[in-house]
Amino acid sequence: MLEVLIFATLNGLVTGLLLFMLASGLTLIFSMMGVLNFAHASFYMLGAYFAFSISQYLGFWAGLIFAPLIVGSVGALVERYGLRRVHKSGHVAELVFTFGLAFLVEEAIQFIWGRDTKNYQSPDILDFPLFTLFGQEFSAYRGFMIAISLGIFICLYRVLTRSRIGIIIQAAITHPNTVANLGHNVPLIFMGVFGVGTALAGLAGVIAGPVLTTFPGMAAVLGSIVFVIVVIGGLGSLAGAFIASLLIGLLQSYAIASDVGMPELLNLIGVSFESSHPLNDLWTLTLPQVAPILPFLLLVLVLIFRPTGLLGKREE
């Protein structure tokens, strides 16, 4: 039991921190522009594919460095020449633009790299068990994923709260006109934050690609969950996104690792159903089976009981 709990926690941390890398960029971009970037997970997918191609020639580590930089540059250009122009036409136009961009990226990836799953591998140097507990191994690569994600979180937090540029970004999110009147180039700041946000998504793709497989549907797998995280955490709240990412990562991981069925849970509260009941199939589901819908269930509960999200603030 303890073994399951420890490994479920570690795997939950890996998933949660990975989700945070995606959610942090998305929530920052939403705070600034007031638009949910539906193409955000596409940048995550681009990161994995760019890293895969780079790793073919220069190895994994070059991909880890260059792929997020390329994705961030693409993101900055998308903001500069796409979103900024569409912004004048309102939020609906922006949403349609990001929807279209998501389709475009997916089609482009299939056109360039094909529909098959890519053999994107983690580096040999990390191909060993970091530790063995209760006879079960925890791979060094997963430990590396945790270290990278935590490192990014700490850097991001320090930059945003301690540095001058972080102060300018925080102020530009809520008072862009005032910040511009003080002599700061707000459009450039927005482009930079969009670039960094998409680079973080790209980095998530680079490190997730070898574990979660690199295929043209990988954006769709995480895309909807990232939106759930941003809403649960509170739109625009970085700390909220961090808590929600870990919450969902751990929730899913515990659900998958548990071997509990609905009948056992219902029995705990004294409810049982005959096997002939028309909804028998529903009552006999196991927790691992319902794990994928748990984030959405949590989303519904948060929207009912705390519509602003865990750390979101109600708009004045």
Binding site: N177, A180, N181, L182, G183, H184, N185, V186, P187
Partner: peptide, 8 residues
Amino acid sequence: KESFEIAH
């Protein structure tokens, strides 16, 4: 001119 340019 943009506000930030004027401020500068």
